[in-house]
Computed example of a mutant assay.
Amino acid sequence: MERGWWRGREKRGWSSGKQRRRPSRARRCSPGRRAAVRYEQDETQASQNGGPSTSESPSSSSSSCQSSPVPELPGFYYDPEKNRYFRLLPGHNNYNPLTKESIQYREMECKRLKLLEEDEQQKKKASRAGLNSSILLHKRQLGLLSSTNYCRLVHELKVNCMQKRKIEIHGPDSSVAGTNNFKIIVADAACERIFAVNDVEHGGCKYGIINLSGLGKESLTVEMYDNLYFTNRKTPVLYNGCRSGEIFSIDVRQRSQKGQSWKAVRLFHDSAVTSVRLLQTEYYLMAADMAGKIKLWDLRVAKCVKQYKGHHNEYATLPLHINEEEGLLTAVGQDCYTRIWSLQDTHLLRTIPSPHPSSKDSIPSVVFSSKLGGNQGVPGLLMAVRQDLYHFSYS
């Protein structure tokens, strides 16, 4: 009789000393909640095993840049490749945390690598629809384009077709050549050499000159000479950009008189001014601010006449590079992208991704000229990132 009673318990799903198991909460929850609960269980099991779960690594998924149709859960992030939710952990003091910053960085890296792959292709999309060398030449022969406009459009075509090549730097001390990160590079008027400012290990800076005559060779090598000093030109009219967004000019040849303002011209941006450049005609001034806006001002009427869109900046002091002969404006954003605009009609011609991952200490420094290395030099863009130097030459 006891044996029959025990068999009856087994048929009803009972076990010795245990009650029937209730359905888990995860089975009765929505799909999103079940994934969140499954994450908590994996996280607990990983902590017991002495380390974080390998599926939590932000770098393990390459398809997270794509949007997902699943519902969003507050405090959780959905990974489409793993088909599951991950908890967003606040702060940076946790082991291997999945934060909004890490997700944004991963998305930016995906975009940079994709643009870098497209940029290295031999055939690129034209900066303007229907613009190619044969059409320009035909319009020039028919007299539909002036000499100035023809040269400007030819430069646009060359800028769009520039190819990246790395430059080897040689110096008197080969043991330290190429080990210091570039901070600033500035070309001289003839573009035969550049003045370089490098970061050094003890926190200071080192100044030097790089001779660009080696850019005409097949191996693209240049010579660098350290610890040289140089000064800038002085002009009687000074233009100053302020943190308040104001830009004013001072003519040092005029003495201030009582009751008169010592500011000759006053312009206003909505954010702190980071760069000011005066054009050759001295009637126009280009300025950039920390809101990412680049404006061209007419000093005669104190009015903004053009605005160049696409620049990115939030707090960095980033310079502008104007090449009026080629009709180009070049600027490097805080996102480490180098952008080139048409100076005449503000059209964005090209966006060049950085060869290195984006970070605060790896914002490229650039120089553009149609005669880099002198009159017989190779035209194009010179880019310094960390301790590397790159040349984007016309094809």
Rank of each mutant, 00 (worst) to 15 (best):
Y308V: 02
Q141V: 08
Y85N: 05
V186I: 10
S133W: 10
S275W: 07
G216F: 07
G380Q: 00
G373E: 00
H321W: 10
L215M: 05
T281A: 04
V276K: 06
G241Y: 04
M286W: 01
T54N: 06
E326C: 15
N232A: 11
H92P: 09
V366E: 01
G214Y: 08
R21Q: 11
D345W: 07
H391P: 12
G178E: 12
S30I: 03
R277T: 09
I103E: 05
I169V: 15
H138A: 11
P364F: 00
I247D: 00
I185C: 04
K164T: 04
H269F: 13
G310V: 01
Y308W: 12
P80G: 03
K11D: 12
S64W: 02
S354C: 10
R300H: 11
D298R: 05
E72M: 01
G259W: 04
A46Y: 03
L329Q: 00
S342Y: 00
L381V: 09
I184D: 15
E56W: 13
L343I: 07
G373Q: 02
Y207A: 08
G380F: 00
V273I: 15
R33N: 13
S249P: 03
W341S: 00
Q121T: 06
M108P: 00
V305C: 02
A264P: 07
S53I: 03
L278H: 01
R140W: 08
C205D: 12
Y394M: 02
K82I: 05
C304Y: 03
E107S: 05
F368G: 05
L278W: 10
L329A: 01
N313V: 04
S362L: 10
G374I: 03
R233N: 15
E282G: 04
G241R: 02
N198C: 03
E326V: 09
G130R: 03
G13D: 15
E218C: 10
R84N: 08
R112E: 13
S68W: 02
L318A: 09
D289L: 02
L142A: 14
N94W: 11
L144S: 15
E81D: 14
G203F: 09
K295D: 12
N375L: 12
G245Y: 07
I209M: 13
Q163A: 04
N180M: 02
K295Y: 05
D388R: 07
G32S: 13
P69R: 03
Y105M: 12
I210W: 01
F392I: 00
L89P: 08
A189H: 12
L89M: 14
M286G: 06
R12C: 13
Y95D: 15
D361T: 08
S395D: 09
I340K: 01
N83I: 06
V197T: 11
Y150C: 00
L137I: 08
I294H: 01
G208W: 05
E81A: 10
G327Q: 03
K166A: 12
W14K: 12
P58K: 01
E72S: 11
M1D: 08
R12M: 14
